[in-house]
Design a protein around this nucleic acid. Structure first.
Length: 245
DNA sequence: AACGAACGCAACCGCATGAGA
DNA sequence: CTCTCATGCGGTTGCGTTCGT
């Protein structure tokens, strides 16, 4: 037995929205908000199902939506975030104010996937690359630390340098952990500077974590990396096992 | 100019999840 | 605990537009 979709109830419209319908929806939501999407169309006098109304509002009519073409910076961000998050369009959209998951999904399938065929990761300093390699060796060395425990998470946004199955597994672990949502630029509470480099320190539940990604002061950190300061992180006690450069 | 192919994007569908009864 | 319902999400579809021949 196949359940008939609610939207196919007799009399409910499907397909593209007419300008008059848009206006009715906008006026109604501006006046009453959208407490209950299912009840909304009836109350607003629309011959649409609630799901269709919600989608139209969220993806097109909401004043929060930024219309127009994606900038190069936005496209780069999408590519970067897609490497971390995969096809989790809503999670990617959350990082791009004014853009919807649907829009991002479309731009990915129509533009960015093709662009990626020729995509080259931004060049980092040699010192930075060396550090990344050290981190990988450390992370992958089975006996070097307790880093593989589910509590200790290693997260990277710089997956161009480190992407492999093991890191992805760790990313997924981290994603479900209590820490993941905290790991943005405000996650780091302290800057740890040595010579011309610096990394970041955060304290969570009495435990100290350090960013494993060491930035060179002379690189374009403000442009390239500031939005993605949730690079690597690791318990400080494990960090001490890392060899110095 | 005509026509088919490719593209771009809005909208739909089915499933997952979470809240509340 | 189970069920129902509302909402959110990701994959897919369909149609209008643009491009190439």
């Amino acid at each position: 037995m196949v359940r008939t979709p609610r939207c196919e109830k007799a009399g409910l419209k499907k397909g593209p929205w007419a300008p008059e319908e848009d206006q009715i929806l906008i006026s109604y939501i501006q006046k009453n908000g959208h407490g209950n999407w299912r009840a909304l169309p009836k109350q607003a006098g629309l011959l649409r199902c609630g799901k269709s109304c919600r989608l139209r509002w969220m993806n097109y009519l909401s004043p929060d939506i930024k219309r127009g073409n994606f900038t190069k910076e936005e496209e780069d961000n999408i590519i970067h975030l897609h490497e971390i998050l995969g096809n989790r369009w809503s999670a990617i959209a959350a990082k791009l104010p004014g853009r919807t998951d649907n829009e991002i999904k479309n731009i990915w399938h129509t533009h960015l996937k093709k662009r990626l065929k020729n995509y080259q990761p931004p060049q980092r300093s040699k010192r930075h690359s060396k550090r990344i390699n050290q981190i990988n060796s450390f992370v992958h060395a089975p006996s070097s630390s307790q880093i593989s425990s589910s509590e200790t998470s290693v997260v990277t946004s710089d997956s161009k340098a480190t992407i492999d199955d093991q890191i992805i597994v760790k990313l997924e672990e981290a994603e479900s952990s209590k820490y993941f949502t905290e790991i943005n630029e405000s996650f780091w509470t302290r800057e740890l500077a040595t010579d011309n480099n610096f990394n970041f320190v955060a304290t969570m539940d009495g435990e100290e974590f350090q960013s494993l990604d060491m930035f060179n002061r002379s690189t374009t950190i403000m442009e390239d990396d500031m939005d993605f300061l949730f690079n690597f992180f690791i318990k400080a006690e494990d960090f001490s096992e890392l060899p110095e450069l």
